[in-house]
């Protein structure tokens, strides 16, 4: 799914979180959005998800202008905030089931995908536990499991590497993400860790005070 931002401006009072951002993200790649605190990384993801509304400019998915009314487009995008949006008193499994139904992703093969993901994230023994009994890392893993089970075309992930996940969880996520890119998925994630962005991303978008300072592969950016 091709993603395009055309002159997106998003301001909070006098602060421009996104300052006329224009980007073209081709499908089948992992894009790391890099920047300091307050650079506008999370705002960018929120605008793409429809949570935040741009003051100016527009967002296009496969040349279709995005709006909150476009359920067809919204079902192709999965947003994973830095704190997963779950029903806390419900079990991991129930939350995953509800999310899969919301995305119409509860068809054939969903059961196998869920079992495999829960096993790999080491969540199988906790599958029927309420979400609010989980640790921060486990919670994030559960969020990722829901996202990976839904397997949408665009993944918007906020700070996956500062989520409290253990190395095993991070490894599983990376592996699934790389495989998903091979299936044509587009993954946009935010991070402040240059080292990770360098090794994990196909392209890096460098944001500074709401402006795109660079958008290319790290190899090219180094030159």
């Amino acid at each position: 799914m091709k993603i395009e931002l055309r002159g997106v401006l998003k301001a909070y009072q006098s602060v421009r979180a996104l300052d006329h951002v224009s980007l073209e993200i081709e499908p089948s790649q992992i894009v790391g959005v890099l920047g300091a605190n307050g650079a506008g990384k999370s705002t960018l993801l929120r605008c793409l998800a429809g949570i935040a509304a741009p003051d100016k400019g527009a967002i296009f998915f496969d040349e279709d202008e995005f709006s909150r009314d476009r359920l067809d487009l919204r079902k192709r995008i999965y947003t994973m905030p830095d704190f997963p949006f779950f029903f806390w008193e419900q079990s991991i499994l129930r939350n995953i089931a509800m999310i899969l139904r919301l995305y119409d992703a509860d068809g054939d093969g969903a059961e196998g995908r869920v079992v495999q993901l829960l096993r790999e994230f080491d969540l199988l023994p906790l599958a029927l536990r309420p979400v609010n009994s989980l640790s921060r890392g486990q919670l994030y893993k559960a969020g990722l499991a829901a996202m990976l089970a839904a397997d949408r075309e665009v993944w918007l992930i906020d700070e996956p590497f500062a989520s409290g996940m253990d190395p095993q969880g991070i490894d599983v996520f990376k592996r699934y993400a790389r495989a998903a890119v091979g299936r044509g998925r587009t993954i946009i994630y935010t991070t402040q860790i240059l080292d990770i962005a360098e090794r994990f991303s196909d392209r890096v978008c460098l944001l500074h005070q709401g402006e795109v300072r660079a958008f290319d592969s790290l190899d090219k950016l180094r030159l």
């Binding site: 998800a49 949570i51 359920l71 919204r74 079902k75 947003t79 830095d82 949006f85 999310i99």
Partner: peptide, 21 residues
């Protein structure tokens, strides 16, 4: 209309999912 606290913001749970008004 349940709200989730996220990064100093209150965001309604439905906003993160494909749910229309």
């Amino acid at each position: 209309f349940r709200m989730i606290v996220n990064g100093g913001l209150d965001i309604p749970l439905y906003a993160a999912y494909p749910i229309r008004f």
